[in-house]
Design a protein around this nucleic acid. Structure first.
Length: 822
RNA sequence: GCCGGCGUGGUGAAAUUGGUAGACACGCAGGACUUAAAAUCCUGUAGCCGCAAGGCUGUGUCGGUUCGAUUCCGACCGCCGGUACCA
C-alpha cells in the first residue's frame, strides 16, 4: 500500500462531509424496503450555539442509524429547529432586533455545527417550526382541536411579575421570583386557551403498555397523570341567616351543597370538619351569610399574595380561618360540622374542597390539633394522640353507627352503595393532570388562529386562510396589562368574522413552545407537502418512530403532550389506522453532560463546552468517540478535556494500522476469534446503547492488530465497517484508500461465526473455601468427572492448601468455576 | 415527604443468568527516541506487608442467604434528578 502520511483530519473530515452532501448519501427514500425511523429531539437554536450536551444524544442516534443502514434498513434520521421561544424574544426586547433575524442567524450556525460533526441527517427534510409553511399545520391542528371541543377558553392563574408588570412562563420563574428582574411573582387571573388533555388521560396511561419506553419514563408519566379512584360526596350547607334573595346559583349548580373528592369514603363517619381552598367560588357566592367575612377575606387575600413556592412548602405550619355562620352536614352522621378556609387545600386538584378526617389523615390531624377540633377515629388501631392513622391496609370500623364492627372492605362497598342510592355521592376518578394552558401573551410564537366576533363569539379562521402569519412588528415588549405585543398591531388585529363577515378581532395570544414540537416528527415524513399535514401513505410507511431519544426533562411535558396530540390526530383520521395511536415505539433518554467538576454547564459559570473548539483541535471523529466513550449513556457525567486526547490517540493509532495492510495474510486463530467476538459485541452494544463498551472493544481490537505484523485486506474491510458508526470520516477515508468508489454507509455489517465466538480453551479459577487459589486450563464444555476431580485435587497448589484435610464439598460449574470446601 | 436514579482505584469506568473485581481509557511513575521539548513507543500502576515467591484487605455502612455476593434480601448513610400538603 506504500507510504502514508499522518492523519490529516481537517481536510479529510470536511471532504467527506461534502461528499455525503453532494452524493445524497443519507437521504431517506420512500420505498417498500424495511424502514427505520430514528429520532432525536430537535434543538432550540440559541445564540450560544451547540454545546456538548446536544452532541451526546445526536451522536448516539447517529451511531444507531448508521448501524441500521449497515443492517440494510432504509433509514430516516431527520433534523429540524424548534425555533419559537423566549430567548429570541427577550433578546429582541433588549436589543430591538427582530427574533426573525436572530433566529435565522442562529439556525445557520446550528446547521454549520451539526454538519461539521458528521451526523448522517437527511438534510432535505429539514424544517423549522417558525416557517409559516410549517406552522400553518400547527394552527390547523389547533382549529381541529377547537372544532372537536378540545380547545376552550377559561380563566386561569398565570405567573405575574409585579415589577415588570408582565406575565411569565413557568420557566421564567425561578424559586418564586422573576428570572430577569428578581422581583416577586404572584398569581393573576387571565383568560387563557386550554387543551383538554385530561380527556385522554386514561388512554395516555393505557397506551404505555404497548410501547417500549424505559421503565422509569412510564412510571413518571403515570405519576404525572396521577389517576386516583375515589368518591365525590355532597355535603349540605346550612346557614344561620336566611337570605332574602334565596341562594344564588353558582356555576349552574345550586349552592346549598358542597362537593368533596375523597379517596377514602370509608372514613366518612370521621369527617369532623370541612376545608375549602381560598379560591373556592362558593365563598364568593355565600358572602352575605358569612358572619366573619372580613377575616375570611383577609385570609384569602393573604394567601393570594403567597408565591407558589411558599404555598407548596410542606413543612409550613397549617393556617386557616373558620367560616362562621355556615356549617355543612356530614351525610353519614347527620351532624353539623364547621367549615374552614385554608391554603393547604388547592383548587387545582379534586373539587377544591375536602372533608377533613383528622383521625386518618396527617394534614387534617395537624390542622385539627392547631384549631382544637374533634379527632374521631373510625377505624380501629393507631394512636390519634400521637399522629393520624392512615389504616391503608384496612381494619375494623368503629364509631360508625350501624356499620361499626364491619371490615373496612365490606363497609366501603356498603357506604358507596348507600351514597349512590341516596344520590349523595358517586364513584369518580380524579386526575392530577390538568388541562393544558395553551396560550402565551407573547410575540414570538404561532398566532392562535381564532377570531372573536361580538355576535358569533369565538370562531376559527377558515382553513383556506391559513397560515395566520405572525406580523412583523417593532415593539416586542408585552403590554403593561399583560397583553401580547400583537394586541398593539391594530391593522392585524382587526379582521372580519369568518362566520358572519362582521367586524371582529384576532386572538393576540400566541401558542406555547410545545405547539410546534407536538407533531414535528410527523412532518418529517413529508416536509414539503402544501396540501395536507403529510401524505397518509408516507405516514403509514414511516410511522411510528422506531426509536426516539431525548432528555429526561421532557418526560412529563413534550413526551406526554406529543402523545396526546398524536392520539387526537389518530382519532380524526390524519394518522392511518395501521400506524396505531402511539407515536413512538421506543423511547430512551441520555444522561446530562456536566461541566468539569460536576456542575451544570452554563454561560455564567463559563464552563460551556463548545464542540467547535474540539473539532478544530482533534477532529469530529475524536470528539464523537470521546462523547460515546466517556461513560454509560444514560447517566450524567462530567466533561473531561483530557478524555478527548485518548480518543484522538485512538484515531491516529487506527489510521497507522494501514501500514500493516497486506493483500492476503494468514490470520491467527486468536485474532480470528477476537474479530468474531467483536462483531457480535459491538453490534449488541450499539443496540443496547452501551456505546462505551463498544468503543472499548474497538480499542481492544485495534491494540491486537497493532501487535500483528500484517493485516489481511478482507479483515481490514470488516474493521472499517465496525469503526464507521463511531468515526465515519476516518472509516470512509480508509475505505476509499482500499480502492472503493462509493461510501461505505450502505455496505453490510459483517457476519460473525458463533463457533468462533466461543473460546476453545478456558482458564478456570479454582476456589478453596471461597478464595481463588489456582487456575486451570480446560477445554470448553469439559464435563464433570471423577477423573477430573482427582486431577484437580492432585494439583500442587491445591494440595498445599488442603494440607491433608478432608474435602467436604467439590463444586464444578461447567465453563465457570471450581469450588472446593474443606 | 414522596417518586426515580446512583454509590467500585488518583480519575471516567468494566464485570453474560450470583462464578478470577478493576477490562478499556485518562492521569501518574520509570525507560527508549531527541541537543532539548512535544509527539510516539515500551514497562509498571487498588491498598498494605515482602527482595521475591506469596499473603492479607478491598465494590458507601452494618447484617443475612450461599461453596461463592459489585450482583440477591433486610436495615441504614450519602449524592443527583423530578415533584403534588393530591384529599
Amino acid at each position: 500500500m506504500g507510504k502514508f502520511s499522518k492523519y490529516q483530519f481537517k481536510n479529510i473530515e470536511s471532504r467527506w462531509q461534502k461528499y455525503w452532501q453532494d452524493n445524497k448519501t443519507f437521504l431517506a427514500k420512500d420505498s417498500s424496503q424495511e424502514k427505520f425511523f430514528g429520532l432525536v429531539e430537535f434543538p432550540y437554536p440559541s445564540g450560544e450555539g451547540l454545546h456538548a450536551g446536544h452532541l451526546r444524544p445526536f451522536t448516539a442516534l447517529d451511531v444507531v442509524c448508521r448501524y441500521q443502514r449497515l443492517q440494510g434498513k432504509n433509514v430516516l434520521f431527520p433534523m429540524g429547529m424548534d425555533a419559537f421561544g423566549l430567548p429570541a424574544e427577550n433578546y429582541a426586547v433588549k436589543k430591538n432586533i427582530p427574533p426573525q433575524e436572530t433566529t435565522k442567524k442562529n439556525i445557520a450556525n446550528y446547521i454549520r455545527q451539526l454538519q461539521s460533526s458528521g451526523f448522517s441527517f437527511d438534510w432535505s427534510r429539514f424544517l423549522s417550526t417558525t416557517d409559516p409553511e410549517y406552522y400553518r399545520w400547527t394552527q390547523w391542528i389547533f382549529i381541529k382541536l377547537w372544532k372537536k371541543g378540545l380547545a376552550y377558553k377559561a380563566k386561569e392563574n398565570i405567573n405575574w411579575c409585579i415589577s415588570c408588570q408582565i406575565g411569565l412562563a413557568n420557566e421564567e420563574v425561578v424559586n418564586g421570583f422573576c428570572e430577569r428582574c428578581g422581583g416577586e411573582v404572584i398569581k393573576k387571573e387571565k383568560e387563557q386557551w386550554l387543551l383538554k388533555i385530561t380527556k385522554y388521560a386514561d388512554r395516555l396511561i393505557e397506551g404505555l403498555d404497548r410501547v417500549d419506553f424505559l421503565e422509569q419514563i412510564k412510571i413518571q408519566q403515570k405519576n404525572w397523570i396521577g389517576r386516583s379512584e375515589g368518591a365525590e360526596i355532597k355535603f349540605k350547607v346550612e346557614s344561620k341567616k336566611s337570605c332574602s334573595q334565596g341562594d344564588r346559583p353558582v356555576g349552574g349548580k345550586v349552592n346549598n351543597e358542597l362537593s368533596v373528592f375523597t379517596t377514602r369514603p370509608d372514613t366518612l363517619f370521621g369527617a369532623t370538619f370541612m376545608v375549602l381552598a381560598p379560591e373556592h367560588l362558593i365563598i364568593h357566592a355565600l358572602e352575605e351569610k358569612i358572619e366573619n367575612l372580613s377575616a375570611v377575606k383577609k385570609y384569602i387575600e393573604a394567601s393570594r399574595q403567597k408565591s407558589d413556592l411558599e404555598r407548596s412548602d410542606t413543612t409550613r405550619e397549617k393556617t386557616g380561618v373558620e367560616i362562621k355562620g355556615l356549617k355543612v352536614v356530614n351525610p353519614a352522621t347527620g351532624e353539623e360540622i364547621p367549615i374552614f378556609v385554608a391554603d393547604y387545600v388547592t383548587t387545582g386538584y379534586g373539587t377544591g374542597a375536602i372533608m377533613a378526617v383528622p383521625a386518618h389523615d396527617q394534614r387534617d390531624w395537624e390542622f385539627a390539633k392547631k384549631y382544637k377540633l374533634e379527632i374521631r377515629p373510625v377505624i380501629e388501631g393507631g394512636d390519634i394522640e400521637v399522629e393520624a392513622y392512615p389504616a391503608i391496609n384496612g381494619g375494623v370500623m368503629i364509631n360508625s353507627g350501624q356499620f361499626t364492627g364491619l371490615t373496612v372492605a365490606d363497609f366501603k362497598i356498603k357506604i358507596i352503595d348507600w351514597l349512590q342510592k341516596n344520590k349523595i355521592g358517586k364513584i369518580t376518578t380524579n386526575y392530577r393532570l390538568h388541562d393544558w394552558i395553551f396560550s402565551r401573551q407573547r410575540y414570538w410564537g404561532e398566532p392562535i388562529p381564532m377570531v372573536y366576533c361580538a355576535k358569533c363569539a369565538w370562531q376559527a379562521v377558515a382553513e383556506s386562510d391559513l397560515p395566520v402569519v405572525l406580523p412583523n412588528i417593532k415593539d416586542f415588549k408585552p403590554g403593561s396589562d399583560g397583553q401580547s405585543p400583537l394586541a398593539k398591531v391594530e391593522a392585524w388585529v382587526n379582521t372580519k368574522c369568518p362566520k358572519c363577515g362582521g367586524q371582529a378581532k384576532r386572538e393576540t395570544d400566541t401558542m406555547p413552545n410545545w405547539a410546534g414540537s407536538n407533531w414535528y416528527f410527523i412532518r418529517y415524513t413529508d416536509p414539503k407537502n402544501n396540501k395536507q399535514l403529510a401524505d397518509p401513505k408516507k405516514i403509514k410507511y414511516w410511522l411510528p418512530v422506531d426509536w426516539y431519544n431525548g432528555g429526561n426533562e421532557h418526560t412529563t411535558l413534550h413526551l406526554l403532550y406529543s402523545r396526546f396530540i398524536f392520539k387526537f390526530l389518530y382519532d380524526i383520521g390524519v394518522i392511518p389506522k395501521e400506524v396505531g395511536d402511539e407515536p413512538y415505539k421506543k423511547r430512551t433518554a441520555q444522561g446530562m453532560i456536566l461541566g468539569e467538576g460536576h456542575v451544570k454547564m452554563s454561560k455564567s459559570r463559563g464552563n460551556v463546552v463548545n464542540p467547535d473548539d474540539y473539532i478544530k483541535k482533534y477532529g469530529a471523529d475524536a470528539l464523537r468517540l470521546y462523547i460515546m466513550f466517556m461513560g454509560p449513556f444514560d447517566q450524567s457525567i462530567a466533561w473531561d478535556d483530557q478524555g478527548v486526547v485518548g480518543a484522538y490517540r485512538f484515531v491516529n493509532k487506527f489510521w497507522n494500522l494501514q501500514a500493516k495492510l497486506a493483500k492476503k495474510s494468514d490470520t491467527s486463530s486468536e485474532i480470528e476469534q477476537l474479530l468474531n467476538q467483536s462483531i457480535k459485541k459491538i453490534g449488541e452494544d450499539i443496540s443496547q446503547m452501551h456505546f462505551n463498551t463498544a468503543i472499548s472493544q474497538l480499542m481492544i481490537l485495534t491494540n491486537a492488530f497493532d501487535k500483528e505484523s500484517k493485516i489481511d485486506q478482507n479483515i481490514w474491510s470488516k474493521l472499517l465497517i465496525l469503526l464507521s458508526p463511531f468515526a465515519p470520516h476516518l472509516a470512509e477515508e480508509l475505505w476509499q484508500l482500499l480502492g472503493h468508489q462509493h461510501s461505505l454507509a450502505h455496505e453490510s455489517w459483517p457476519k460473525y461465526d458463533e463457533n468462533l465466538v466461543k473460546k476453545q480453551l478456558l482458564t478456570i479459577a479454582i476456589q478453596i473455601n471461597g478464595k481463588v487459589r489456582d487456575m486451570i486450563e480446560l477445554q470448553v464444555d469439559t464435563e464433570d468427572s471423577a477423573d477430573l476431580q482427582k486431577q484437580i485435587l492432585a494439583r500442587e497448589k491445591v494440595q498445599k492448601i488442603l494440607a491433608g484435610s478432608k474435602v467436604k464439598k467439590f463444586i464444578y460449574v461447567k465453563n465457570k468455576i471450581i469450588s472446593i470446601v474443606f
